[in-house]
Amino acid sequence: MNINATLILQSIAMMIFVWFCMKFIWPPILKAMDERRARIADGLAASDRAEQELEAAREAAGEQIRQARGQAGEIIEQANQRQSQILDQAREEAQSEKSRQVAAAESEISQAANQAREELRAEIARLAVLGAERILEKEIDAETHRQMLDKLIAEI
């Protein structure tokens, strides 16, 4: 363990290694690290920006959806109103049509009944005359007995 010239050589070796490091090792590594730091910072900023943009887009989309929902509600409301209108109208029309048809049918019926009644009456008169002829075995002068016959028919 004696002090000798190893001291000097170690000194020189150290200076050479330090010079190497200063020249070839430190600058490139630090440069790469700084560049990467800048890139990461850029990336983080970009991601922040993208997040903000996403938030804004989300808000805009929400706004649009709210609007669309409002419009849809209005349209449905209108459609409902229109539907009830149409229904009411149709109901009214159907009602009037029904009453009209019923009225027509009733008048037809009464007409037919009257007609039938007239015919029946005539037939009865004829039958009555026929019956009377059989009973009296002589012809009845229709004209003579008209009054009586009519009275009879009216009684039937």
Binding site: N2, I3, N4, A5, T6, L9, Q10, A13, F17, F20, C21, F24, I25, W26, P27, P28, I29
Partner: peptide, 27 residues
């Protein structure tokens, strides 16, 4: 005084070289 510890110098240089190789590769 004028003598050298060959082993000390050898290993010091070798390990300094190792430092230079490892870090130099990355650099």
């Amino acid at each position: 005084f004028w003598a050298f510890h060959v082993d000390t110098i050898f290993w010091a240089l070798l390990l300094g070289g190792a430092f230079f190789l490892i870090f130099g590769r990355v650099a």
